[in-house]
Amino acid sequence: MSVFADLVANLADLLQPLFGAGAAAAAIVLFTALVRLLLHPLSRAAARGQKARAALQPRIDELRRKHARNPEKLQRAVLELHTEEKVSPLSGCLPSLCQLPAFFLLYHLFSSSEIGGRANELLSHRLFAAPLGGRWADALGDGGMLGGAGLVYVGLFAFVAAVAAFGYRLTKRSTAARPVLPSGDGEQVPGLGAVTKVMPFMSFFTLVTVAVVPLAAALYVVTSTTWSAVERAVLYR
């Protein structure tokens, strides 16, 4: 934890001449961008995997018709097909899973009053009037929505909502291009239709995350979500 704290502090010192009191917030955005840049090869692999899975869909439909009355055999046949074509069904999850440690490190870093036996000086940093270790509830209790910290969150929520709307359109477009297909007996796979309807709204769950985590962790989430939206628009165009 102390090594990670020193990394953020050093980045903040480096950015101090450009961003002044907001240098720590800028350091978090830069750190997030560096993490996502390192994970970009995985994102490209995930995009290739999704396109490969889409190309396999006609063959999977044929397997569904062939093994309509034997779900276990169908599952084995689909797995064998993925193995044969070297396509991983889980490749799309890797970029999200790999960045979880960085998010939790930031969360704990800005939730701890002490680091390595000394006071956590990072908690004194702010984004305009909002402390990086504070939450939306703290902002509401200190001046309300129109207070200094409250207005920071208003701007943050507006930005997140715009990114979420962009992600919503991307997901709607991709699901429309890949409609829910029936199983071998002509019936829709149970629960798949509901999942498909809910998926476009997943982008808006970021608003809940931003509201409940420390502002520093919220900046990580917002930066990463924005990166993901732009990355998806480019890789899945």
Rank of each mutant, 00 (worst) to 15 (best):
216 A>M: 04
170 L>V: 02
35 V>S: 06
155 G>C: 13
119 A>R: 15
43 S>T: 06
194 A>R: 10
191 G>H: 12
100 L>H: 14
170 L>I: 05
64 R>K: 15
224 S>N: 08
30 L>A: 14
122 L>D: 00
123 L>S: 02
185 D>E: 07
146 L>P: 00
148 G>C: 11
52 A>F: 05
235 L>Q: 07
163 V>P: 01
148 G>P: 08
193 G>T: 03
3 V>E: 11
32 T>G: 03
89 P>G: 06
189 V>M: 11
67 H>M: 04
236 Y>V: 04
192 L>M: 14
84 E>L: 12
87 V>W: 03
63 L>M: 11
196 T>Q: 13
43 S>E: 05
128 F>S: 15
187 E>W: 07
40 H>M: 14
28 I>V: 12
67 H>E: 07
196 T>C: 10
118 R>P: 02
218 A>W: 00
140 L>R: 07
220 Y>P: 02
180 V>Q: 04
131 P>W: 05
216 A>D: 01
215 L>C: 08
73 K>I: 04
114 E>M: 12
97 L>Y: 02
67 H>P: 01
25 A>R: 00
167 G>C: 13
134 G>P: 07
175 T>R: 11
138 D>L: 09
183 S>W: 01
147 G>V: 04
72 E>N: 11
151 L>F: 09
109 L>A: 01
122 L>Q: 01
237 R>H: 11
80 E>A: 15
80 E>C: 05
27 A>T: 05
164 A>V: 03
45 A>Q: 08
198 V>I: 13
194 A>H: 10
93 C>A: 13
53 R>E: 10
160 V>P: 01
134 G>T: 07
47 A>V: 01
129 A>D: 12
67 H>Y: 14
141 G>P: 03
63 L>E: 11
190 P>Q: 05
172 K>C: 11
173 R>C: 07
140 L>Y: 03
122 L>Y: 00
24 A>R: 03
46 A>C: 07
103 F>K: 03
44 R>K: 13
187 E>P: 01
213 V>L: 05
21 A>D: 14
159 F>N: 07
53 R>K: 15
43 S>F: 06
137 A>S: 14
195 V>L: 14
24 A>M: 10
122 L>A: 03
121 E>C: 07
100 L>Q: 14
237 R>V: 01
7 L>V: 11
183 S>G: 15
75 Q>A: 15
125 H>I: 01
183 S>R: 11
227 W>V: 00
89 P>W: 09
4 F>C: 04
29 V>G: 06
211 A>P: 00
130 A>F: 05
158 A>E: 12
214 P>Q: 06
131 P>S: 06
87 V>A: 04
55 A>S: 13
216 A>Q: 04
104 F>N: 13
158 A>P: 12
172 K>M: 09
131 P>I: 06
13 D>K: 15
